[in-house]
Simulated scan of single mutants.
Amino acid sequence: MSEPSAAAHALSPVDLFLQADSIVKAVMVLLVVASALGWAVILDKEIRLKVLNARAKKLIAGIQGVELPLGHLAPDFASAPPSDPLVQVYGAASEEFLRSRDLLTTEAQRDAAQERVHRAATLASAAALGHLQARLGSLATIGAVSPFVGLFGTVWGIMNSFQGIAASNNTSLAVVAPGIAEALFATALGLVAAIPAVIFYNRIGTDIANYGKKINGFIGVFEIELSRQLSRKGDRGGLRVA
């Protein structure tokens, strides 16, 4: 009964790593680091998007049917973290409107002000989404490269096994199995690193795109309120700019 236990122990992941060739060990370490990096990015993006979506739902619900103070942040936005994309977009649009409030005497000036506000909000949205997408490319790289790195380790390990067979003139399965197992373990590690990276790259990319739609929806709400206030009778006296 002791021989099967010893064989099982010899083929455990730790023993496969310890018994592997130095090149195969380097490949395994690289794949473990890549997997850890991928999961760090995944957890960071998943947690951040969950928080942002929950806050966006609250912020957008808070401004629906309410007249926006165009010259400064609404109370809910002022109390939210400055790093929130919606806050950054609202802040950029409000700041641009505030800078243009002395140029609203004619219809052409009001149209130009609305266009500048739209551009400021769009630029802020693009910058915020770009920040959300930072490091997302590393998941694509891990997903694409890790299987090939693992395959390299496998090929190298099998080559060493064949060299061992040639040196010992022994083709017994007991002789070649450990070396082949070490080589295949590198491929397994490559897949362990690549599969979650590919899955979450697509999922997080979709989530960011959906969050971008929420930002665009908010920009639309802001512009509608801006147009309404600019169209009011009484010239600038009806605008909430302070």
Rank of each mutant, 00 (worst) to 15 (best):
A181H: 14
G91D: 12
A126N: 14
S100H: 12
R228W: 00
H118E: 09
F77I: 00
A54L: 12
P75F: 00
M1Q: 11
H131W: 08
Q109H: 09
L68Q: 06
A194M: 12
R135P: 10
A108Y: 08
A174W: 05
V29S: 06
A121W: 06
Q109T: 11
F17N: 02
A121S: 07
F162V: 00
L31R: 06
F152N: 06
D207L: 15
F162L: 09
I47Y: 11
Q109Y: 07
I47F: 09
A20M: 04
V33L: 13
V27Y: 03
E67Y: 01
D235V: 05
T206D: 07
V33T: 06
L104H: 07
G62I: 00
A8M: 11
A121H: 10
L132S: 04
Q109N: 12
A121F: 07
G71H: 10
S227L: 13
F222C: 03
G217A: 00
L132W: 08
N170F: 04
M1L: 04
N210Q: 14
L98V: 12
I165M: 10
R110N: 10
E3Y: 12
A10D: 10
A166T: 02
N210R: 15
V29F: 02
Q114C: 11
F148L: 02
M1F: 09
L132Y: 11
E115K: 11
P75K: 05
H9E: 15
P69Q: 13
K214H: 08
L189V: 00
F17C: 00
I195V: 01
A40K: 13
M28Q: 14
Q88D: 01
A167T: 03
L43I: 15
L123G: 10
V149T: 11
I180C: 07
M1I: 08
A194K: 13
L139G: 01
R116E: 15
E46L: 13
E3T: 14
Q64G: 02
V241K: 11
A134Q: 15
S100A: 10
N160K: 14
E182F: 08
A166C: 01
R240P: 04
V66L: 04
L189K: 09
A194P: 07
Q229D: 10
F162R: 04
T105H: 14
D21N: 15
E182C: 03
L226A: 00
I199F: 15
F185K: 07
Q109A: 15
L37A: 03
T154A: 03
I215L: 07
A183Q: 14
Q64M: 04
G137H: 09
A93N: 11
F185I: 03
V145W: 08
G179N: 15
V175G: 01
V241E: 11
I224T: 15
K25L: 02
T171L: 09
P81Y: 01
I60H: 07
S12N: 11
I199S: 04
R48S: 11
D44L: 11
P178F: 06
A78N: 09
S168P: 05
L132P: 10
S161M: 13
L52R: 11
K213A: 12
Q109C: 01
L104W: 02
E107W: 14
L37K: 05
R110V: 04
